[in-house]
Nucleic acid binder design. Structure first.
Lengths: 115, 115
DNA sequence: TCACGTTATGTTTATATGAATATAACGTGA
DNA sequence: TCACGTTATATTCATATAAACATAACGTGA
C-alpha cells in the first residue's frame, strides 16, 4: 500500500510543540478525562503521554492541559480552552494543506511501484 | 527560535519513498555528479546516502538515479529525467502546501512562548 | 598491469528513542 | 484512618536509527 502523509510540525526550541501524535493525544485526553486513560486507549505508556503533555505545556504561552492530582477519582486532566484553540487551528491547517495539494499528491502516488 | 515545518512524506511499503531529506539528496547528486560527493557536501556518510538512493529506486516505477561504476573518474551518479520530474513535483507540493496555510501557521507561531 | 575514485555491501559501534518498571505524593470518600 | 486512581518522576531495559569502519568490484587511463 502507498499513501502520502502531510505532516505539519510546530517546532519550538528543538521540541515539537505540536504534531499529529500530540494532536491525537489531546483529543484522547479531552475524551477520556485523564492522561492515563488516554494513554491506555492509544496503547501508549503513561510516561510517554505525560512527557508529551509536559512538552506541550512548556512550549506555549498558556497551558494546553490542566491536571489535577488526588481527589475523588484520583485526579484527572482536561484540555484547556486555549488548548482547544490550538488543536482546532492545527487540525484546520492539516485539512487545508491536504486539500491544497490533493491533485498533485495523487499524481505522485501513481508513480509509485505499488499504486 | 520557533518555526513551523510542513513535512510531506511519500510512504510506500513502510518506506519513505520521498521526503525533505531525500529531495535534498537528489539535488546534491544532480549538482555533484556522484553519490559520494553529494554525501560529503551534506555531511552524510556514503553508506547512508546510498541506502536512501536504493530506497528511492526501489519505490518508484522507474529509476530515480542512474549510477555507473568504474571508468574514467571511478564512476558516478545522475538523476534521471523521471527523477527530475518526481523532484519537481515534490517541491511544487511543498511550496503549495506552505503557501496555502501561511496565515494560519503564523497565527499558531504567535502562541508559542519564544515567538 | 596498476592506480584511482566510485559504486556496492556488510559489520560493528554508538546514540537516540521508546517501553517497562518502580515509587512517591496527592485529595476525596468510605 | 485507609483505600483508591491519578499525577509526577526516576531508573533500567530494549529497540530502532544512524555513524564508523572495512572491503570487494568495477572500468578507464596512464
Amino acid at each position: 500500500m502507498s499513501s502520502i502523509k502531510i505532516k505539519i510540525q510546530l517546532v519550538a526550541n528543538d521540541n515539537i510543540a505540536m504534531g499529529p501524535g500530540k494532536a491525537d493525544l489531546l483529543e484522547a485526553i479531552q475524551q477520556k478525562g485523564s492522561i492515563s486513560a488516554a494513554a491506555l486507549s492509544m496503547e501508549m505508556s503513561y510516561k510517554r503521554a505525560w512527557d508529551l503533555v509536559s512538552i506541550m505545556n512548556k512550549s506555549f504561552k498558556q497551558a494546553i492541559i490542566a491536571t489535577a492530582v488526588g481527589g475523588d477519582k484520583g485526579g484527572g486532566a482536561q484540555v484547556t480552552e486555549f488548548g482547544l484553540q490550538i488543536l482546532a487551528q492545527y487540525r484546520a491547517i492539516e485539512a487545508k494543506a491536504n486539500l491544497a495539494v490533493e491533485g498533485e499528491t495523487k499524481a505522485l502516488m501513481r508513480m509509485l511501484i505499488d499504486c
